[in-house]
Design a protein around this nucleic acid. Structure first.
Lengths: 244, 244
DNA sequence: GAGTGGTCTAGACCACTAC
DNA sequence: TAGTGGTCTAGACCACTCG
């Protein structure tokens, strides 16, 4: 077991159960090192992880402080609508409306680093929450993974879970572009909203740990269904405004 | 000068000018340590920063790889509309529509950790980009910083810059909630869009490095003006879906 | 001025990749 | 099997906070 991970887990649990309330100081790094029988470097590694999760903050000379109790979600949870919904105690549903192999568009070829005209597997899914339409997901998988995607039951709650189980850790990195759009005719009909009403859009490109693009997606949420939550600390910039 | 920061800057520049193209491997950690005359620990610290910025990725056993050329923005740039616009080569403008001291609403008191009824300074600003209305910003400053805010010229491009200059590093942490909303009557008139057309909304709470809330804000962007960009790596979860 | 976090070093061993 | 990154240690010094 990795020591710094174990220590981070311990502290996260202590924060979650209120033993370390929000606003209170953590033990000093030296104390944590002594009580857990590890070196100060390992303690600092664990604290860095908690800081990146938005749970603690630090200033030179003063103790680390507990800043929050809720851990931001993992990459896997973020990519999987079904995992997220279940974590919220809600009932996810999914319906595949179409599946087609076709040549990549110019945009897809660029995002997925494909030759122009290479084949992609395009899947359109309507996802629901507690029986209500919630999100429309247009995903294009790179050709090299298309067979694996088609092998898994497309009606499965979470294709991501299945791919993970079949192929191991497929994803290592993702980029999301978040903005708002007006619902088109088709969007409106499928999601049960009026035409040109607001939708929250998240466009995503996922890659393997070695940087090879796997899939790109255009997800459109009904308003009120989700909010994206971003923690930013002075140490770790993670969110950027962009010109479209 | 901090060594790991200097090394990170060097590598960032090498990536930006193409000396280390996207997809290519970096020198080994041992090589970087030798050529820059620092220890391997310092090299790893620098590489951790670049990874958090989405510029490089790594796998055990293989070399670090260059993944992108564009650094995500710093916390300061993210909070300041004017800084962001200038960085894009565009002309920011700003107009304060109203400034009022009033008791905090229940929501504000909760977000800013204030006593019910404590005073806040509420500012409504219309921000423009190249002369066009772009964003409507409703900011509430906690009472303890209200005087400083009122002292700076409210017509200044960037109140954030001025506060930073006057008070030092005011901000240490921020949380953003991003979703979409329909424009209300007032929003629509000020931004020059039709009523109930889509707007991208970012709600923010900023705190000092020690965790004291400074301000909360509700920013509404015309669509097409900005896109939020989030990098997620397996190591560092930073974005979360949330139920509203 | 004592305490505490931020930075840096030097060296070690292990797990994984690539050839 | 050699190379490389991931983890951990022990110790040092500095910058900053706080009473």
């Amino acid at each position: 077991m990795v020591l710094h991970r174990g220590l981070a887990d311990d502290l996260r649990q202590a924060i979650a159960r209120g033993a370390l309330p929000v606003g209170s100081p953590l033990p000093t790094e030296a104390e944590l090192a002594a009580t857990h029988g590890v070196s100060r470097g390992t303690v600092r590694h664990a604290l860095t992880i908690l800081a990146a999760e938005g749970l603690i903050s630090s200033r030179q000379g003063a103790r680390h402080l507990v800043r929050g109790t809720e851990r931001t979600q993992s990459l896997a949870e973020l990519r999987s609508f079904a995992q997220w919904a279940r974590g919220q105690g809600r009932q996810p549903s999914g319906e595949v409306l179409s599946t087609v192999r076709r040549p990549a568009t110019a945009r897809e070829a660029g995002l997925l680093h494909l030759e122009p005209g290479a084949e992609v597997l395009a899947v359109l899914r309507l996802r629901g929450l507690d029986g209500e339409p919630a999100m429309l997901e247009r995903t294009s998988y790179a050709g090299w993974i298309a067979d694996a995607v088609e092998r898994v039951d497309p009606r499965a709650d979470s294709v991501t879970d299945r791919l993970h189980a079949e192929l191991g850790a497929v994803f290592g990195h993702a980029e999301h572009l978040i903005d708002a759009v007006a619902a088109g005719v088709r969007d409106a009909a499928l999601l049960g909203v009026r035409r040109s009403s607001p939708l929250l859009r998240a466009r995503r490109v996922s890659t393997t740990p070695s940087g090879r693009p796997v899939e790109c997606s255009d997800d459109r949420y009904r308003i009120g269904v989700v909010t994206f939550d971003v923690h930013t600390t002075a140490g770790g910039p993670v969110l950027a405004r962009r010109a479209p």
